[in-house]
Nucleic acid binder design. Sequence first.
DNA 1: TCCATCATGTAAACAGTTACATGATTGC
DNA 2: GCAATCATGTAACTGTTTACATGATGGA
Lengths: 187, 187
Amino acid sequence: MSRTTSELEGAVLGVIWQEGPCTAYTVRKRFVASPSPQWSGSAGAIYPLVRRLEKKRLLASRILTSTKRGGRLYTLSSAGQKVLDEWIKPPLSPMVTGVPADPLRTRIGFLGALIPARRRTFIEAALRGNDVEIQTTLVEIKDSREKNDHWHLLAAQGALACLRARRTWLRAAARSLHRKRRAAAAG
Amino acid sequence: MSRTTSELEGAVLGVIWQEGPCTAYTVRKRFVASPSPQWSGSAGAIYPLVRRLEKKRLLASRILTSTKRGGRLYTLSSAGQKVLDEWIKPPLSPMVTGVPADPLRTRIGFLGALIPARRRTFIEAALRGNDVEIQTTLVEIKDSREKNDHWHLLAAQGALACLRARRTWLRAAARSLHRKRRAAAAG
DNA sequence: TCCATCATGTAAACAGTTACATGATTGC
DNA sequence: GCAATCATGTAACTGTTTACATGATGGA
């Protein structure tokens, strides 16, 4: 009967669970601040979504009186809590456990379309970009440790593990390119 | 002047570059067969997209005469080659180098919403699902090695690296849960 | 011959982005 | 008091999925 919960819906319920009573803008800021560029956290996505969730009785809201601007303070209802629970817990679909999409990896799959000289340039740029992300993530880890935010820390550590693995892989790719070039020169 | 190339557009151009002259259905199959559940490769996405790309002169097509069913054989035009090139090569936006989205990681960030007993269950299910993906990827690696598909091999190795890192991370998460539980019991 | 599935598509529903609008609040 | 930006929203556009339709092809 209940339609399946989308990633964004689940994440919004999760944020409201974490933040306690909060406005749509608070939720929005969380997505905008998120290091992963998964969602933009655009107003056009969040405001209509929380309205939908409220209509489904997964969120309760009361009007903000402390400010003249209006707006609503949202809380997770018990039905919302349950939906959040169902969204997180097993069984985990392949969509959840499957190989996460990585635009960098996608491009590597078509790297042969570049002229050889550009391939090396690509890998170098990728390594630089990846290192920037690693630095950002280290800061994020430090922050969540200081705030004692156990789950966020765990998630950030997962992101770091992924980035470090990507780094090792990219370096191996660079070496493999090098071998290929030498083989081509020799053959 | 030219609008930015989306991930799906880039990937479709890449597939047609790889496969040589091929039909929309061939492209579609590639996405459906892809281990990453990023795109469904649905007909409603691919057929209109190749049409759009053709209208933009990035693809050329000729009608299939060998079959009665009709359909078209698409080829990358030189303009298409150029767009593919631009799409792959640096500068790489944060959207490309950023932390790849991982639904598993997202859920871990909200794991505190589950009752403690369920948290362990989640991690175990995640590990099982992850191991299945590792097996699938190993097969993929074997295949591309046999087919001497260098770039696809490289991409699959990247996927494997990511999955292995995820495995290590999940095991660490399980240990961390365990510590937490013991601390709670003791405190 | 008949049934499954291949291959090509289309249409409606839906979700998310961009861009805009508007009033409140804050800092100078 | 004025400018910047905060906060709340809306509307149009775009792209993707789901579901359907339809004829071709291949194997029993």
